[in-house]
Every structure is written in structure tokens, then in C-alpha cells.
Design a protein around this nucleic acid. Structure first.
Length: 307
DNA sequence: TGATTTGCGTCGGTGGCCAG
DNA sequence: CTGGCCACCGACGCAAATCA
């Protein structure tokens, strides 16, 4: 078993239009990433969100996608990014035409092993600035599609070194995703619009990249302000519109994801994990952890101990 | 006994409001 | 749309209590 999922009901505000019921899917990843070939004619699961990164690579037939408050028509070859904490669901368009897709789930911690790896995560965190859809017609979607198929084949044949090979394919997919996002970024001066009406702020994305790279260190908000070239009011406003959260919330979520990974995949002391994740105070780390997961770090580790 | 959790006080991050 | 002002509440750290 590579994943188990626990659905936790919760209420979340959607697009200022009131509250809706959805589920937090508590994915526990036993490896850093998992490829899966999927097939469904009634894929109508609840609107849900989770804190792992997910690729949905549509292979056959059409589907409807909802990500946060936006809807998309998915055609074969389209690649969708389901970003951490972004509510999403997908439905087949026609029950008689079941969809096939490749799902790739990965832990953000995977990029710690890659030089400048955190830059690769920007497309997953600039939620409102970078479109979650990589259209089938783009060279990036074609490449990602091929790479995902290769990864599935690797797992089927289980030839020697297949896991390492899959790891390389994941990195390649991440690079294609980043290049696709930045290609669209290059032509934009300060704040222009994507085809689907979303605004892009390269300076904020730069700040996001900086945070992704340095979240385990002490981050000076003034440095971010300088980097973005904005006054604090404008910065907070724009940052929130791009990521859906304040800079501090953003930093804490990244730290919590890293902490959870270390709690489950290492036997380091909780105090050390807190320090490694950027918390100078273990007390504050505990408090955040409990707010984030509902249990203390020690309880979380105990309930997720590997056999 | 060291590791972890809880309680509480202080200060700065955050966002609302308004003017330019 | 951006920047300044300001009030409030959440972030943070310290001390004491509790747990393993």
C-alpha cells in the first residue's frame, strides 16, 4: 500500500458566496511520490482538498473540473495541477464515456533533494496567479503526458532501478511545469491577465519562490517587501490574492508539511524537527502543529508509526 | 530526568478605512 | 489603484506543569 486516505469533514468559505461542506483528504504518503493509472465512469467524489501536490493527467475522454471557485472543461491530454489546500473535484462529462487518467501525488519534501528544488514548486503555490491547467495543445502537456506514461511503464516492468527512474521522471515533470508557467510569465510586465482572466504578479511570485527556498530559516518580511517592490499594505493584499493566504500562514503551512514528513519518515527528536523546520521555539511549534493537525506532534508520530 | 505541552503576557503582522 | 494611519488579534517567547 502506498497511500491511505482519511476524509475529515469540514466547512470552508468558498469565493465569498457562503460556506459549503467539503472534505480534507488526509493522504499519508509512504513514498515521496506515487503514480497511478485510474479509470472511472462515475468519478463524482466530494469536493475535497489535501496538503500533497497532485497532477491529474487526462488520457481518455472528457471531464469537468472544479478547482476552488473556477470550472474547467478537460479534454484528453490536458494536465491539471491540484494544489495544496485548494478544494477540487472532477466529474466525467458523459457516463457512457468513462475517463482514464494518470494521477501523480507527491510530497513537497521531495524537492529538498534537488538543487534549487523549491523553485520547482512555485506553480503549485501561486494558486491565483498561475493557471492550474496546462492545455493539451502545449508542448509541456505533451511532454508531461509522455513522462507520466513512462513512469507507469517503469512500475509495471519493475526493471532494476525503476524507482530511481521514476524519481527522475517526476523531476522532469516538475521542470516542464515550471517552464510552462514561466513562459507565460515572461511576456507579462507588472500585472496583466491570463486568457482565463486571472492576474499575474511576477514580483509576488518571486517572493513566493524566495519563501519556498528559505522557509526553514528566519524570513524577514521587510526583505519580501523590498523584493516585491511594494508597501506593506499592497504587499499583503496582493500576496493574499495570489496565494489565498497571508505570508505568515504560507510559511507555516510549508513548515508544517516539512515537519509532518520528518515526523513520519525519521526518528529525529521533535525538538530537532521544530528547529530544522524554522521554529526557534518548540512551544510555538507544538501549538501550530496542534492547530494544523488537531493532535500534538508526539501523538501524530505515534499514530503514524510505520510497522 | 529530559522531552513535550500548556498558559499567559507582549509586540508586531495584518487588514480596514480613507485620502490622494 | 496605491499609500498612510491605526486598532486588533495572532505570532512569538518565557515559565511552569505534565508526560514518557
Amino acid at each position: 500500500m502506498q497511500f491511505c486516505t482519511m476524509l475529515i469533514p469540514c466547512i470552508i468559505e468558498l469565493n465569498n458566496e457562503g460556506a459549503g461542506m467539503m472534505f480534507f483528504a488526509d493522504f499519508k504518503i509512504e513514498r515521496d511520490f506515487v503514480f497511478k493509472e485510474k479509470y472511472g465512469d462515475s468519478e463524482s467524489h466530494e469536493l475535497h482538498f489535501h496538503d500533497v501536490l497532485e497532477y491529474h493527467i487526462l488520457v481518455e475522454n472528457e471531464a469537468n473540473f472544479q478547482l476552488a471557485h473556477k470550472k474547467y472543461d478537460g479534454t484528453p491530454g490536458d494536465v491539471f495541477l491540484f494544489r495544496p489546500f485548494e478544494p477540487h473535484w472532477n466529474l466525467v462529462k458523459n457516463a457512457k464515456m468513462p475517463i482514464r487518467w494518470i494521477s501523480l501525488l507527491l510530497s513537497p519534501s521531495i524537492v529538498r533533494l534537488i538543487p534549487n528544488g523549491y523553485k520547482l514548486l512555485a506553480p503549485f503555490y501561486a494558486v491565483e496567479a498561475i493557471s492550474p491547467l496546462i492545455p493539451a495543445s502545449s508542448s509541456s502537456a505533451i511532454a508531461i503526458h509522455q513522462l507520466a506514461k513512462m513512469a507507469i511503464e517503469e512500475e509495471k516492468t519493475k526493471a532494476i532501478g525503476w524507482e530511481a527512474k521514476q524519481f527522475l521522471l517526476v523531476i522532469d515533470i516538475l521542470v516542464h511545469t515550471l517552464r510552462h508557467a514561466s513562459k507565460r510569465d515572461e511576456s507579462i510586465s507588472s500585472a496583466e491577465r491570463f486568457d482565463d482572466g486571472m492576474e499575474v504578479y511576477p514580483s509576488i511570485i518571486q517572493a513566493i519562490e524566495y519563501i519556498l527556498e528559505h522557509f526553514t530559516e528566519e524570513i524577514d518580511v521587510n526583505h519580501l517587501l523590498k523584493m516585491a517592490g511594494k508597501r506593506h499594505t499592497a504587499f499583503y493584499r496582493t500576496f493574499r490574492s495570489v496565494t489565498g493566504m497571508t505570508p505568515n500562514m504560507f510559511i507555516h503551512r510549508l513548515r508544517m508539511q516539512a515537519a509532518i514528513y520528518m515526523l513520519v519518515n525519521s526518528d529525529k527528536r521533535i525538538t530537532d524537527i521544530a528547529h530544522e523546520c524554522g521554529y526557534s521555539s518548540i512551544h510555538y511549534f507544538n501549538k501550530h502543529f496542534k492547530d494544523y493537525r488537531g493532535v500534538s506532534p508526539r501523538e501524530y508520530r505515534k499514530s503514524n508509526e510505520k510497522n
